[in-house]
Structures are given as C-alpha cells and as structure tokens.
C-alpha cells in the first residue's frame, strides 16, 4: 500500500473513532441536561425542598435530602482521604523511603484504585454486620474515604515525584530540614495535588456503589452520624428503578444537579491550578 494511502486510511479510522466517542458522550450529556433541565425548568424548587413522605412514590417534595446527604458524606470523606493520602504520598518520596518500597506501595494503590467501588461498600457492610450496627452516614463516609484514598494518593505521589530533583537539592543546600524542603516541594506540586483532591472528590460525589448498602438511603434529611442518609447517586438509582414515570423523570433532574456539581468542581480545580502554576517553572 502507498505510504499516503496508508496515512489516509489510518487517519480516517482515528477520525471515525473520535466522532463515535464524542457523539455518544454528547448524547448522554445532552439527554440528561435536556430531560433534567426540563424538570428543573418547570419546578426548580425540587432542589431546595425536602421530600414529602410519599416522595419516591410520586408524591410531593424535592430531593434536598440527597444533595445535603452527598455533601455531608463526601466533604468529610474527601478531607480525611486527602490527609491520609498526603501523608502517604510524602512518605513515598525518595527523601523518606526506598524506591523499592515506594514501587510496592504504588502497585498496591493501583490495585485499590482499580477495585470496584461495590467492594468497598460490601467491606463496610460486613463490618457493620459484625458490629451489629445499621447503615448510616458514618458508614457511608468510611466507604467513600476508602474509595477516594488510593486515587488521591496516586495523584499526589505523581505530583510530588514530578517536582524536579534539583528543586529539592536547592532546598537542602540552603540548610533546610527534610520537612522544610518538603514544604517547598508541596508548594511546587500544588497544581497536581489540587487535581488529585478534586478527582477524588468528584469520584466520591458520583459513586453509587460504595454508598448503596452503607448509607441507608431513606428520605430523611441527613442529621446524626449514625442515622441513615442518601446521596444523589443513590437517589438516581431509586428514582430510575421506579414504576412511576414522573419519578423516573425526576432522576434526570438529580443527574443534572450531580453533573453540574462535578463540572463546577473541575472548573474550580483548573482555576486553582492556574493560580499556583505561576510559581512553577516551565523551563
């Protein structure tokens, strides 16, 4: 085959795949935004209204309980996962541990990252059964933390690793201690560190499997740590499997809100990254 024909052929295939992927994504996002947008346009109050007693059976009210539940579970989970991940990522750098150990731990983190979220859910559920406790906000928080930790840790390790070795050498040669040098390294890695936290946050916010068995999923507002709670993905699951068409439509409204929250998070992370990247050298 002619070199140029070969190029045309391969490039056509690439364009085709591109069109396919973008088309499917546009379809999913477009349908959610359209159908969800329609519901929210007609009754925007569902976002700020607590559900009525018959909400999931087509009754009155909104899904404020799931929005608040999502934040009550995912915000503290992200905070805890971030602190743990930061400590681990710092320790994995060459200043603290051997390359061999770091490689082994990173392999483990990759495995944890690839573990389906339902496994974390079932793990926490098993603990609950052993402890004779009920599904609750706290249990869901633990499951989400477990889900987020490997993601954030891998991101952070990569961000710290990508800080140039000569930055550390410059720090140490000024007579800085390991901790003081680490502070500089952390600052240089801030764009990457932020990206890791946001990715973990977004994953925690959007995941349903980890919280499905652990959060309880009632229609009460989140209140006590040991009380049941609901998140947006659980709500979407409940609504989408409902026999009532009006309830199924509401699932799109909840998905709309979820998508906007994740989009907002990603925009915020880009803004933060841009702000801090003024301090990082690109030459």
């Amino acid at each position: 085959m002619n070199r140029y024909t070969k190029q045309t052929l391969v490039e056509s295939l690439i364009r085709l795949s591109m069109a396919l992927v973008v088309g499917v994504l546009a379809l999913i996002i477009g349908m959610t935004l359209y159908k969800g947008g329609l519901v929210l346009w007609n009754q925007p109050e569902v976002v700020i209204t607590a559900p009525g007693p018959m909400y999931l059976l087509g009754g009155s009210g909104g899904f404020l309980h799931a929005i608040l539940g999502s934040f009550a579970i995912v915000l503290p989970a992200t905070l805890i996962a971030t602190l743990l991940a930061l400590a681990v990522a710092m320790y994995l750098q060459t200043d603290y541990c051997s390359e061999r150990f770091a490689r082994a731990v990173n392999l483990l983190l990759y495995v944890l990252w690839g573990t389906p979220a339902i496994v974390y859910g079932v793990f926490v559920l098993t603990l609950l059964i052993v402890m004779e406790a009920r599904a609750s906000l706290l249990a869901a928080l633990v499951a989400v933390t477990l889900l987020q930790f490997p993601i954030i840790a891998r991101f952070m390790d990569e961000a710290l690793r990508s800080v140039a070795a000569n930055l550390k050498e410059s720090g140490y040669s000024l007579g800085l201690t390991r901790l003081e040098t680490m502070k500089i390294t952390l600052k240089a890695a801030l764009p990457g560190l932020t990206a890791g936290v946001i990715m973990g946050f977004a994953r925690g916010l959007g995941d349903g499997a980890a919280v499905l068995f652990t959060a309880g999923g009632g229609i009460n507002m989140p209140n006590e740590l040991d009380d049941s709670a609901t998140t947006l993905p659980i709500l979407i699951f409940q609504q989408a499997s409902s026999p009532y068409p009006s309830v199924r439509d509401d699932a799109f409204a909840a998905a709309f809100v979820l998508m906007m929250l994740v989009l907002g998070l990603i925009v915020v992370s880009k803004l933060i990254a841009n702000h801090f990247s003024r301090y990082t050298q690109d030459h």
Partner: peptide, 19 residues
Amino acid sequence: PDIRSRIGYVSQKPTALPM
C-alpha cells in the same frame, strides 16, 4: 542542615523556588 548551610550549592539546572 546546619553543616549544609555553611556550604552553598548551585545546580546545573537553573532553579527558582516556588515563591
């Protein structure tokens, strides 16, 4: 660190601290 502070070092690759 006390010993290092008595010996300055400038590396091959120009390095700005992130500040």
